[in-house]
Simulated scan of single mutants.
Amino acid sequence: MNRRDFVLLTAAVTLAAPLGATRLRAETVTYKPGVVSEALDAGKTVFVDFYASWCSTCQTQHRVMDTLKAGNPDYEKNIVFVVVDWDSYKDGMLSAELKIPRRSTLVVLKGDKELGRIVAGTSRAQIKALMDTALMAATST
C-alpha cells in the first residue's frame, strides 16, 4: 500500500466511526434545559445519559445500549432517552440536582423519583437491568 492510499484509508476510517455513532444515536433526544422536566411532567420515563464524545467508557455504554435497543424495540417505544453533553452541561442545573459525579453516568427517572443509576459501568447485564427498570416503570400504570 502506498502512502497516499494509507492516508486516504486512515481518513475514511476515522471519519466513518463518528458518522456511524451519530446514526445509531439518532433515536435519542439531545439535552437542552427543560427537556427532562417536560418529559417527566408528561408522565414519561426518562433515561438520562451523561455523555462525552471523547469518553471511551461512554462509547462502550452506547454500544451496549444500541445493541439492547436493537434487540427490544419496546425500549425506544416507551422510554425517552436523553443524552446530556458532559462538556456543555457538567456544571448545569440538571447535573447539580441529580448529583452527577462524572460523565458516563446513566440515570432513570420517573415522576419525582430516581429509579436507578450506573456510574461508569459498562457490563451488558448492568445496563440491561437499568433499561429493564426503565421499561417496567414506563409500561406499568
Rank of each mutant, 00 (worst) to 15 (best):
D5A: 03
L8K: 13
L9M: 08
T10F: 13
A12W: 01
A12R: 02
T14E: 14
T14W: 13
T14V: 03
L15A: 11
P18L: 01
A21F: 14
T22K: 00
T22P: 00
T22V: 15
L24A: 10
L24H: 05
A26K: 03
A26H: 06
A26R: 07
T28S: 15
V29K: 14
T30P: 07
T30G: 09
Y31E: 05
Y31N: 06
P33K: 05
P33V: 05
V35D: 04
V46D: 09
D49C: 05
D49A: 00
F50I: 08
Y51T: 14
S53E: 15
S56F: 10
S56Y: 13
C58H: 09
T60R: 15
Q61Y: 06
R63G: 05
R63Q: 08
V64Q: 01
M65L: 11
D66E: 08
T67A: 10
L68W: 07
K69M: 09
K69C: 10
G71L: 04
N78M: 12
F81M: 11
V84S: 11
W86Q: 07
D87Q: 04
K90C: 02
K90P: 02
D91F: 03
L94Q: 00
S95H: 03
S95Y: 01
L98K: 15
L98F: 11
K99Y: 02
I100Q: 14
P101E: 15
R102Q: 14
R102F: 11
R102P: 00
T105D: 13
L106N: 15
V107E: 00
G111K: 07
D112H: 09
K113P: 05
K113Q: 08
E114G: 11
E114F: 08
G116Y: 05
I118P: 07
I118C: 13
A120I: 08
A120K: 01
T122E: 06
A125G: 13
Q126N: 14
Q126L: 01
K128Q: 14
L130I: 12
D132E: 04
D132R: 04
T133H: 08
L135W: 01
M136L: 03
M136S: 10
A137S: 11
A137L: 04
S140K: 09
S140F: 03
